[in-house]
Design a protein around this nucleic acid. Structure first.
Lengths: 138, 138
DNA sequence: CCTACATATGAATAAATGTTCAGATGTCAG
DNA sequence: CTGACATCTGAACATTTATTCATATGTAGG
């Protein structure tokens, strides 16, 4: 018979030892929330195009970002504000323009890793081989 | 004066060359959507705890997952369904129990990279990475 | 100053999302 | 068969979230 035990909260567990082990290994609620936030930021197509654009282009102004992402300038501005609040992008203003750039190494790596495995698209720093043009997946 | 140009859609651009370059480098809409989906899946604290538990524990049943994640069993089940639909986790049923495990190398890497940079928590056992969990089911 | 322009912001709307509750399915023990 | 148990599912609900529209801020040039 499978051994069963009681959690401190009164819940039945199947493998209490493993549960305990896992519990101890899990990040704190705060860290989990923070990480979830980061992933969430990357979890929107618009922001993802935005960030990928910055990853590629290095530094772009709002109107150019609107062009590369096919979003309205207002939507871009809102999105950038969010990303700015999370320190994912940074701005430098010159004249009436605002130039944004990716400014978070962690996010850059996640983006990079994500892009590497999605649709075989070579989006990052490789040589300019325009081989991968059509990606119809699968 | 900054040179300006007209996009095919009739939008004013500041650096049309760079815009074009970035545009070409961006993944297809489909790939972007897919990647956003993956990040989105990781963007919820509950699912993140769920996946981290599986990353740590290797294989756990629903009730134990409910314990490690502090979610109701129903919430866990719903979340697992979503993850299952995206092939991120897989199930093996034994008796009336359902044992889940992480079954997506891409997600495993993203998780790993994410955890590495969040709160210094060392969550992964290097020696166990992906070869030690090779008992396939079904 | 005044106009044109780039970007930012707030409020409102619409859509997607996570959780809970109640009940369904399927499995094991007696 | 029957009752207990683990998990699954659907519907309802509450929240969050992204977009749009209108307007504000701020800069440059005439």
């Amino acid at each position: 018979m499978a051994r069963e035990a009681i959690d401190e909260c009164g819940v039945n567990l199947v493998d209490p030892d493993k549960v305990d082990l896992v519990r101890r290994a899990l990040p704190s609620d705060h860290d989990i929330a923070e990480l979830a936030d980061v992933f969430s930021l990357l979890g929107d197509p618009g922001r993802l195009r935005l960030l990928t654009s910055l990853l590629e282009g290095g530094e772009l102004c709002v109107c150019d970002l609107a062009a590369t992402t096919a979003m309205s300038e207002s939507a871009v501005s809102h999105a950038l504000r969010l990303l700015r609040a999370h320190r994912v992008v940074s701005v430098s203003r010159r004249g009436r323009m605002a130039y944004y750039r990716l400014d978070d190494a962690h996010v850059r790596m996640l983006l990079d890793l994500g892009l590497t495995h999605t649709g075989h698209t070579i989006a990052v720093h490789p040589e300019r081989t325009d081989s991968a043009q059509k990606d119809n997946v699968r």
